[in-house]
Design a protein around this nucleic acid. Structure first.
Length: 404
DNA sequence: TCTGGGGTCCTAGGACCC
DNA sequence: TCTGGGGTCCTAGGACCC
């Protein structure tokens, strides 16, 4: 999808059309640009740029907060259309998808005809622009869709992959970021053609496994990296995390603990929705000077309970926090999942069973009344404190949400 | 300029086992 | 007294993607 978040915002507020728009938050907030309109990009604003920097480059830009629900909604509508074109569809992200068009020719015509039809149907159903790349590999399809932007269709004929790629900058290859790009520049490799001319063995010697994959990519092959699996196979998540950057750095232990509790609850809830248990809990701690540490603990038994994750993350925090330093960010990350065999654990005197029942009820309340309707005690304490700081009217006595 | 949040994959070292 | 080789699991950090 082209400038997806900005385009969705324009659907809801047509007056934004053609103007410099920045999605991601207010101009003076901590945060980065999620998406910038083409008009804003002319001023040098691009995604991942700090909002405050974007404001300096383009003070007349309109800054809007993101609306993730809207983007998910429109992503879903696009997905429905894609499914009509191929049974093998894979959403690579909220605004990108791959379709395996093998065997669709009799129904949809040539790849180019199918792509044009798809392009029109997406526009008709959503009023959003997209770009489509067609090629014999995922890698080349992705790069050609980038080259087709905005609002274009580009077909790389079989056999012409390498010559299409050759003049492009190596940074166009997905997986070649700032660091790899710099390393390649240092040995005189600027364009994909330079890379294709290198000896495979030489690249492997210099960059290991990645170098080998890179050699293949220079010729347009998917081999190695993320493109290996079949299009459309859904895989289970390998990790779940939530993190929070404070509006202002803090060393208030109550606030820090409450944040950890809250993050643990969010993580645990999603874990239960997947029907998993987890064994490894990781704390992420970023200080004001941006130094960041992660500290992990593997539990003796897998769990799916808020309280277990909250306890583990608080322990990690207290064991490793240098309390002379103020904290910018906290995060809770879990990994090492196993399926939840919903047998009640009788070894702990029914503790797990009681918690499971309580959490099931809590999840239902959250569905009905919103995420902040219920929480563990220590999280609520901090929750109110935070709301009181930001809005004195939100004192517990006047709490607007009855379920709380 | 002052740096979000949610992910995946890779590397490297150490503990531990046979 | 000096020190193999293969494997798994765990931890920490980092590159990269959207």
């Amino acid at each position: 999808m082209d400038a997806f978040f900005v385009s969705v915002e324009e659907l809801f507020d047509p007056s934004l059309k053609g103007k410099p728009v920045v999605v991601g938050g207010k101009h003076d907030e901590r945060g980065v640009v999620s998406a910038a309109s083409y008009a804003a990009r002319k001023f040098g604003v691009h995604s991942a740029m700090p909002l405050r920097t974007a404001y300096q480059k383009c003070p007349q830009a309109i800054f809007v907060p993101g609306h993730p629900e809207r983007y998910k909604e429109y992503s879903g509508r696009v997905y429905e259309i894609l499914q009509r074109f191929s049974p093998r569809v894979e959403m690579a992200s909220i605004d990108e998808a791959y379709l395996d068009m093998t065997g669709t020719e009799r129904l949809l015509g040539s790849p180019l005809q199918a792509a044009h039809k798809l392009h029109q149907e997406v526009k008709a159903a959503t009023n959003l622009n997209c770009s489509i790349g067609i090629a014999s590999s995922r890698l080349v399809a992705k790069i050609s869709s980038d080259q087709a932007k905005p609002n274009g269709v580009l077909y790389i004929l079989p056999g012409l992959e390498a010559s299409f790629l050759a003049p492009l900058a190596v940074a166009k290859i997905p997986g070649v970021g700032k660091v790899m790009n710099q390393k390649l520049q240092e040995i005189g490799i600027r364009r994909i053609g330079d890379l294709a001319a290198m000896e495979e063995r030489d690249l492997e010697r210099r960059f290991g496994k990645w170098g080998l994959a890179l050699a293949g990519k220079a010729h347009g092959e998917d081999a190695g990296g993320w493109f290996d699996s079949e299009i459309g196979e859904r895989s289970d998540p390998k990790s779940i995390s939530h993190e929070h950057t404070f509006g202002e750095d803090t060393r208030d232990p109550v606030r820090l603990e409450a944040t950890l509790t809250h993050l643990s609850e969010k993580v645990a809830r999603r874990l239960r929705e997947h029907g998993f248990r987890t064994r490894t809990v990781q704390l992420k701690l970023r200080y004001s000077d941006f130094t960041t540490i992660t500290r992990a603990q593997t539990l003796p038994e897998p769990t799916q309970l808020d309280i277990d994750l909250a306890e583990a993350s608080r322990k990690l925090f207290h064991d490793h926090w240098n309390s002379r330093q103020t904290v910018r960010l906290l995060g809770v990350h879990i990994s090492g999942f196993t399926a939840d065999e919903t047998q009640g654990n009788l070894l702990d005197g029914g503790r797990s069973e009681r918690w499971r029942n309580a959490l099931e009820a809590a999840d239902k309340l959250r569905d009905k009344f919103g995420e902040s309707a219920v929480g563990l005690g220590s999280g609520m304490r901090g929750h109110y404190r935070e709301r009181v700081q930001e809005n004195p009217a939100a004192l517990p006595g006047k709490a607007p949400q009855k379920p709380a």
